Simulated scan of single mutants.
Amino acid sequence: MRPRATSVDVAREAGVSRATVSYVLNDAPGQSIPEETRQRVLIAARKLGYSPSAAARTLRRGRSDVVLFVLPEWPIGPVIGTLISTLTAELAAHRLTLLTYQKLPGSTPFRELWTAIAPAAIIVCEALSDAELETIRTAGIEVLTALAPDPAVQGSLAVAQELFGWRQVQHLTERGHVRLAYAYPADERLESFAAPRLRGARRACSELGLTAPVVATIEDDNAAHVISQWRALDEPVTALCGYNDEIAFALLDGARRNGLRVPADLAVIGVDDIPVARYANPPLTTVATGVEVQSRAIAASVLGILADRPARSPLPHQNDIVRVIERDST
């Protein structure tokens, strides 16, 4: 096998010093390298198949070009997928690589991972203990808290989850509905998001002078049965809030199996505005969570921290992010 080319080989091929090769290939600031010299180095590097060693660069700088994104044990659906892809693109534009790590049973312990890769920064979605933060920051690694379900968490860039439930109820009452139900998820991993969304729906009903929404957990194939129970109440339910769009799809199916027309007999609203929501039958009214806006704000905050600028990139006002996308299901 041909030995891997080194910066010494590139310097020899280009007829320049090894330092010049380093300056050119690492875009070192403050260096005046003639364009002709820069091109010679780039041509030599391509010819020899040279690429800088990430490990060596990490040793020189004391950190890598990796941003570690730590996810709790949340289901990875369309919203988290959009978050990851947007963050990846935003950071890649600044030559940073996003490494996503999910805390699952049996996975590599968090401390072992960050000490092994020495990331430039760590994005967490749950508040770390003071001891953990101190240990990480003592190692020269920046930490940003993002998307914690409670936006009061120090450094969190999350939007208040209660606002999603509030928006659902507000929209339904504007359409004339006064008896509402809330469809709760069965997946316990979603509890930290589901509980505040339900609180928001209850608070909206209270503030608007409505009876509190009836609540049931939607799991397996029980949506039709739950809807039949809600419709059999002394004051039948006429509008349903789904925890998210996936649960709202189950409600649409449950309504059809009960012979109910949506929205003539029963209105349905979800949360997330996932791509397939517009193709539901009927197209699903939902609350957009602004995940792309949040993702860009997180990326901007990371870049600000690494450039020694203010750590936070404020989100636009929540009212501009969390908005109802009205379609035919309400």
Rank of each mutant, 00 (worst) to 15 (best):
D328A: 15
N319R: 14
T135F: 00
R46D: 15
L266I: 12
R261L: 13
L68A: 04
A248L: 08
L180N: 11
A14K: 06
G49V: 03
T286K: 06
D272W: 01
L208V: 08
A121C: 11
P275L: 06
R257Q: 15
V124C: 03
T217S: 13
L96E: 03
R296P: 02
D320E: 15
G259P: 10
R197F: 02
G49Y: 02
V322M: 05
R312F: 06
A311I: 06
G49T: 07
V70A: 04
E90D: 14
A28R: 13
V268M: 09
A239Q: 07
I122W: 00
T238A: 09
P196S: 11
L284Q: 06
R179D: 13
V79I: 13
P185K: 03
G165T: 07
R46M: 06
V226F: 05
Y50H: 10
T115E: 15
A264S: 11
A19H: 04
A45H: 07
A300V: 01
C241L: 12
R323P: 05
P78R: 07
A160T: 09
P314E: 03
R111E: 15
C205I: 07
H225N: 10
P282M: 12
E132Y: 00
P52K: 12
R197M: 01
T285R: 10
Q229C: 10
K103N: 04
A11P: 03
L303W: 09
A131G: 02
P75N: 00
L190N: 05
D253Q: 13
V66W: 01
R167F: 04
G209Y: 10
R61M: 13
P105A: 07
A250L: 12
H225Y: 08
V169Y: 08
D245C: 10
I122V: 14
A116M: 11
L113A: 05
Y23M: 04
D130H: 06
L83M: 13
A186G: 15
N26E: 02
D253W: 04
C205G: 10
N319G: 12
V302W: 06
P282R: 11
L284R: 04
V268P: 08
I321D: 07
L233P: 04
A212Y: 03
L59Y: 02
V287Y: 04
E174D: 15
R261A: 14
L99V: 14
V276M: 11
S301K: 04
Q39G: 02
L252T: 02
A300L: 05
A28S: 13
P72T: 00
G242M: 03
R57W: 01
Y101R: 03
